[in-house]
Amino acid sequence: MNRHLKSAILSEEDMDVEEPNEQEDTTPSMSRSRSLLSLFTFDVDLPHPSLVIVTRCENVNRNERLETMCLERRELDHAMSWLSTLGGAFSALGEKYEHFAYMAGRTSVEQFRLAIRLGDDLIVARCKLYYALSLIQRGYLSPARKIVKQQYDLAKNSVVVDNRLVRMCLGIWAKLKYEYAERRNKKNRLKIISS
C-alpha cells in the first residue's frame, strides 16, 4: 500500500494520536500522517464502520455539496441508461407503428434534458440525433434533415472528432435518404395509377 494512501485512511485508534511538539524528533512519514490529522475529518458510510477518511477540505459543507453532486451524477447516469433502453425499444417499434415513434421522440427529449444537466455535449448531440430518427419515422423528413446535418457539422468541426457521433450521423442520413427515395417511389406509383 502506498505511503500517502496509508496516511489518508486511518482506523479509529489512530485518531487519538496527539499532535507532536516541534522539538520532538519524528520521521517524515509519521509527521505527514500527524499533520493530516489536524485537518477536518468526516465519517463516511463504508462497509467497515471502523474506517474514517481524512480530507484536506477546509469546509465540511464543501464535502456535502460534493457528495450531493456525485450522487446526482450517478442517478442521472442511471436514468440516462434506462431512458436509452426505453427509447431504443420505442424506436424499434416505431418502424412499424407511428405512436411508438412518437414515444421514442418524447423519450429522446427527456434524455436531452438529462444530458444538458450532465453537461455532456456529445450526449446532447446524440439525443438530438435520436429525436431526428423519431421525426424520420413519423414522416417529418425536412426538420430531421436539418438536425442531422447540424450534428454532423458539429461532430466534424469539433476539436476532437468523435467517430461514433459521425457514424451515427451517417447512419441516420442513410435512413433519411432511404425514406426520401421511398416517398419519391410512392409518388411515382400514384402518378402511374392515376394516369
Score class of each variant (00 low, 15 high):
Asp162Phe: 01
Glu18Val: 10
Val166Met: 04
Leu176His: 06
Val52Pro: 02
Leu83Val: 04
Leu135Glu: 01
Ser195Asn: 11
Ser31Leu: 15
Arg56His: 13
Leu114Asn: 04
Val148Thr: 04
Val44Ser: 01
Leu141Gln: 11
Ala79Gly: 01
Asp43Arg: 14
Leu141Asp: 00
Met15Asp: 06
Ala144Glu: 00
His99Leu: 14
Pro143Ile: 04
Glu67Gln: 14
Glu110Trp: 05
Val17Tyr: 08
Pro47Ser: 02
Met80Phe: 13
Arg34Ala: 04
Arg34His: 04
Cys57Lys: 12
Asn2Tyr: 11
Lys156Met: 15
Gln150Glu: 15
Lys177Met: 00
Gly119Leu: 04
Val52Asn: 02
Asn188Phe: 13
Phe112Cys: 01
Leu46Phe: 05
Asp25Asn: 13
Arg184Trp: 13
Ala174Arg: 08
Val148Pro: 05
Thr85Leu: 12
Arg126His: 08
Arg117Lys: 11
Ser7Ile: 07
Ala104His: 05
Asp25Thr: 14
Asp77Ile: 15
Ala92Glu: 11
Pro143Tyr: 03
Ala181Ser: 11
Ala144Leu: 02
Val54His: 08
Asn185Lys: 11
Cys169Gln: 07
Lys96Glu: 09
Arg32Pro: 01
Cys70Tyr: 14
Leu83Tyr: 06
Ser91Phe: 05
Pro49Trp: 03
Arg62Val: 14
Arg145Val: 11
Asn63Tyr: 10
Ser38His: 01
Leu165Glu: 04
Thr107Lys: 05
Ser91Trp: 02
Val124Asp: 01
Tyr130Ile: 04
Val44Asn: 05
Arg3Pro: 15
Ala104Leu: 01
Ala101Phe: 04
Arg56Phe: 08
Ala115Trp: 05
Ser158Asp: 13
Leu114Pro: 02
Lys191Gln: 14
Ser158Cys: 06
Tyr178Leu: 06
Asn21Arg: 14
Thr41Val: 15
Gly139Arg: 07
Asn61Tyr: 13
Tyr97Val: 10
Ala89Tyr: 00
Leu176Gly: 00
Ser108Trp: 05
Ser11Leu: 13
Tyr102Lys: 14
Ala144Tyr: 03
Phe40Lys: 15
Leu122Ile: 12
Arg113Thr: 01
Val60Ala: 09
His4Ile: 12
Arg3Leu: 09
Gly87Cys: 07
Tyr178Met: 03
Arg126Met: 12
Leu170Pro: 01
Thr26Arg: 14
Leu76Asp: 10
Glu24Thr: 05
Thr85Lys: 12
Leu5Ile: 03
Tyr97Thr: 09
Phe42Ser: 09
Ser134Ala: 11
Glu110Pro: 03
Trp82Asn: 10
Tyr152Asn: 11
Arg106Cys: 06
Leu165Asp: 02
Tyr180Ala: 00
Ile193Leu: 14
Met15Tyr: 03
Phe100Ala: 03
Arg184Ser: 10
Ser134Gly: 10
His48Glu: 12
Arg34Glu: 07
Gly87Pro: 02
Ser108Gln: 07
Ser142Asp: 12
Arg73Asn: 14
Tyr140Trp: 12
Leu170His: 08
Leu114Phe: 02
Val54Ser: 07
Ser142Arg: 09
Pro20Trp: 02
Ser195Cys: 06
Ala132Thr: 00
